[in-house]
Each structure stands twice: as C-alpha cells, then as structure tokens.
Amino acid sequence: MIPVTHMLIFSMILFGIGVTGVLIRRNALIMLMSLELMMNAANINLIVFARQLDSLAGQVFAIFVMCVAASEVAIGLAIVAALFKNKETIQIDHLNDLKG
C-alpha cells in the first residue's frame, strides 16, 4: 500500500482545487460543484485514516458527510432556483443588493 502522506497530499490538492473554484468562478452552480469537490477531499481523508488505523469510525463518518453533502446540494440548488426566479441571473457578482 502507498503511504498515507501521499494520499493526504492528493486530497489536499483536490481540496485546493475546490477552494479555487469557489473563489474564482462567478457561476453559482460551478461554486456548488466545487463545494462537492471539497467534501470529497474530506471524505478521502476519512477513508484513508479508516484504513490506516483499521477502524470503522472513519467510514461511518464518511457516510454522514455524504448525507450532509446531499442535503446541502438540495438546499443550495433550491436557493439557486429561487435566485434565478427572482433575479434572472445566477452570476454571483450581480447579486449585490445588500451592498450599502
């Protein structure tokens, strides 16, 4: 098996790509997809340490993370739908109504 450090580096790069997507994209849908990438990176870490420590707690928590990710996507996409209905756009930087 390959060392844990390599898997950690990989999942960290995946997380970094997700952070980059949230920071630099203007499309709300792409931002939600990047959030999914970040959740997956966290999940990979949990699975890696579940194998490293030979403990099932990591796998169980990965299931909980997936549960949270699914509800987050459902709510997030509902918010995007409501935004589009009211504003006719999902470009994040057009949604600055609260700016003073």
């Binding site: 579940a50 194998r51 030979d54 796998q59």
Partner: peptide, 10 residues
C-alpha cells in the same frame, strides 16, 4: 508510519 499491508476490522 507505514500503511498496514492487511486490515482485519474494516
């Protein structure tokens, strides 16, 4: 530490 070659619990 090195990754275990075989796992039993999981």
């Amino acid at each position: 530490g090195p990754a275990p070659a075989t796992v039993t619990n999981i």
